[in-house]
Design a binder for these strands. Structure first.
Length: 278
DNA sequence: CACGTCACCTGCGTGC
DNA sequence: TGCACGCAGGTGACGT
């Protein structure tokens, strides 16, 4: 789930408060707790503990779907994968220590009594503590909302991977960072491009439309604080045009939204607005 | 190298 | 009601 807009929403909340929790900027780490070993991808927990204690949160940023928390000269990098979520909450209340919840995998305790909790039912999420972010971010493609990502850059990528279908290409984090299954389907719908079209047969005009569609769905996602999955991403208001709307009416043309499988991912599209041939 | 498939996990909805 | 099955917002390892 969490794709660029959801991660951006979470990062903003960590910076300035929101989503029911306080900001973590300026807070000092007192201790930590690791409930599921594999959640910590690097380094081993013994080393991790020594490095993180007493560090202060200086910055919180995002790159692709990664949350990057700078603690002095080191970075805590978090990837939520499918079901990860973060909470900032009080450790102790009038009843004593607030119990951790089911699926809480990792906790940072701050010296002001707040705690930072990583919850993840499916255990796919990962956390790293590194001094060089290149270790994690080296293979990421451009940020789709960064000025360095241009229509020309997108068209070049389509040409460079001409034999892949456009859906698989947009999901590839080496090509563009931050887009996942929801926003891919939404961007292709907005652009009127069928998910199975080969990247190489998308012409420059369509490519430019796709470029603006990608930016527009991501910006709308951010503006709405993420997607409408109350289940995990509390409060998101982004409304789907095609995602999870199989069998329902296309909001543009009234045709019936279809669902197919593309590269093992559920893929939603409008057969009228997104013809396979052109 | 580039691309496709599978494994990693748990929970939920569906259909029998 | 119970249960087996398929599916889920992601990606890295492995095979062709």
């Amino acid at each position: 789930m969490p794709e660029l807009p959801e991660v951006e929403t979470i990062v903003k909340a960590l910076r300035q408060g929101g989503r029911g929790g306080d900001a973590i900027l300026g807070k000092r780490v007192e201790s930590s707790y690791l409930a599921w070993e594999r959640t910590l991808a690097y380094p081993g927990y013994e080393v991790f503990k020594e490095h993180i204690n007493n560090k202060v949160v200086d910055e919180v940023n995002r790159r692709g779907k990664y949350i990057l928390i700078r603690l002095g000269n080191e970075y805590l990098a978090i990837h939520l994968r499918m079901t990860g979520d973060l909470r900032v909450e009080t450790r102790i209340d009038e009843n004593g220590e607030t119990p951790l919840r089911q699926h809480d995998r990792f906790v940072l305790y701050f010296d002001d009594g707040l705690r930072f909790v990583f919850n993840d039912p499916r255990k796919f999420g990962r956390i790293w503590l590194v001094d060089d972010l290149r270790l994690i971010l080296d293979n990421l493609g451009p940020e789709p909302l960064d000025p360095s990502f241009t229509p020309h850059a997108l068209y070049e990528s389509l040409q460079n991977h001409g034999k892949r279908n456009i859906k698989a290409l947009l999901l590839d984090q080496k090509v563009i960072a931050g887009i996942g299954n929801i926003y891919t389907d939404e961007a292709l719908f907005a652009a009127g491009i069928h998910p199975l079209r080969l990247a190489g047969q998308i012409d420059p005009i369509e490519s430019e439309i796709l470029y603006h569609s990608i930016q527009s769905v991501l910006l709308e996602g951010i503006r709405r604080n993420g997607a409408s999955f109350d289940w995990v991403y509390r409060g998101g208001k982004f409304e789907f045009q095609v995602y999870q709307r199989e069998g329902q009416t296309c909001k543009k043309c009234g045709a019936t939204i279809q669902k197919i499988s593309v590269g093992q991912r559920g893929t939603h599209y409008c057969p009228m607005c997104q013809p396979i041939l052109r």
